[in-house]
Design a protein around this nucleic acid. Structure first.
Lengths: 259, 259
DNA sequence: CTTGTCGGATTGTTCAACGATTCCATAGTG
DNA sequence: CACTATGGAATCGTTGAACAATCCGACAAG
């Protein structure tokens, strides 16, 4: 998630090289695939690994929102220097998971109700726009079925729901929306949605995963079917209602059904 | 943009409750002014000040895209430690102005054509959505004329154009779009547009400011008038064409009118 | 002309230290 | 009893230096 670059580039390039004629075509495909992977190779950098570790702890709920992350303590545990730890803090801070108060330290972000509204405000703008403009980019050639990833996410969610694994339902749901936006092919939109969904995970903590994620496997399926049928405008309005309902649901879960 | 959280809520509320009736008006005004300035004061943090300085140099074109920023050199010039300089680098890197290549150093970002398309892709999604949903938040009360800031930006652009100060036209143009998005009252949308516009400044470098910014003072005026008349839907379509034209204009300026 | 190797230069990371700031508790005052 | 202020403890911000890892250019060999 740190690199919003689109995955699945390799498989697409592979099939493209297979049916292409001429050695030049294949060379270009290979190079294309290599360059996309090159960025992922040198991604090490201790700070990013530390950030990954902390991100997992936060998004999986091991660190409650509001808790302070002591530099001294984490330096001792993670076996890294204070500077690199601070670098990791910066990374997560710009992702919205950690908030940095001057001379006070870093804390796990506490989402206010306004934040929740704001997040869904942006999601609605981004995701609905992506869906509405899908026709401009999706129809031609229909290459390797761009919706395949979405279908996989929907089915993964349904499987997990049957198994009662509501945590897996949640991640499948996240992947569904991430991949939905990825259809636009915009690195910046990918990045913003990745940040939004990461922040949203903070709000999921402390509530029963079944109630948080359960109701949306059916809606994901419905949305996917609309997209697959090419009814983008209808899908967009469905998605708008989807997100509004989801926001209302979230605020209810926080304050109790009535306030 | 860096700190979406709003402090000052507590102190303001506290004093307001303390002396409910008395010399309340003046006290509240003083405290309000102080608290707003307080946030700006302790926002210092050497790294952020260094970042501000570098940001100015980049956005004003003193550093051409692609140039490498030597740590050693900048440490000597800016009189700060290498670690704090690197922290400033990270800040600007996350804003998209600087790109950080492992073991190679930081460089002023070079925008590709795809980047330019992507930036306008997101701008169109965000700004048009803001305009379309303006009716939901603008009409009631109409408080302190929310469009006042926009009008000021439009007039500032027109004045600067009359003076031939095309650089000022450019900043007025930026402010116009920034304040347009600000009407939505969404901190996250504000942040993303701030980043987008900062990246866009990179693309403006190296072209005559008159051709880059000149054609848009009239369009800003037209857009403002539509908004002021409450014709949001018409304003949205106008804005769509506005942005499409602007993108085409930018790519033309880069490659010459024909390719 | 391409390929392999070497050395200088720059970056990545760590460490220890000092000044600055915040927080908390205690004591003093009305 | 409530309120302010004064102190100390803890933590953060910043610095400077040091070493290891990596990149870059030049040079030599095939």
């Amino acid at each position: 998630m740190a690199r919003p670059s689109s995955p699945a580039a390799e498989s697409a390039a592979g099939t493209a090289a297979a049916d292409a004629a001429g050695p030049d075509r294949r060379d270009r495909a290979w190079l294309q695939a290599l360059t996309t992977e090159a960025a992922a190779l040198d991604r090490s950098s201790t700070a990013e690994r530390v950030a990954d570790a902390l991100r997992r702890r936060v998004t999986e709920g091991h660190l409650a929102p509001g808790t302070r992350l002591s530099e001294e303590q984490l330096v001792a545990v993670l076996q890294v220097s204070r500077n690199t730890l601070r670098e990791a803090f910066r990374l997560l801070g710009h992702e919205g998971l950690l908030v940095h108060r001057l001379h006070r330290g870093v804390f796990v972000t506490e989402l206010t109700d306004e934040d929740l509204v704001d997040i869904y405000r942006v999601r609605r703008a981004v995701e609905c726009d992506v869906v509405r403009r899908l026709g401009e980019v999706l129809d031609p050639a229909a290459g390797p079925e761009p919706l395949g990833q979405l279908r996989a996410d929907v089915e993964a969610g349904e499987d997990a729901a049957r198994r009662g694994d509501w945590s897996a339902v949640g991640t499948a749901n996240m992947h569904f929306h991430q991949h939905l936006v990825a259809l636009a092919g915009s690195p910046r939109l990918d990045g913003t949605t990745a940040r939004l969904l990461a922040e949203l995970r903070l709000a999921f903590q402390g509530a029963a995963a079944e109630h948080v994620h359960g109701p949306y496997v059916a809606r994901n399926r419905a949305l996917f079917e609309l997209l697959h049928a090419g009814r983008t405008e209808q899908a967009a309005t469905e998605l708008e209602e989807y997100l509004d309902v989801s926001l209302a649901h979230m605020t209810d879960l926080r304050h109790g059904p009535r306030r």
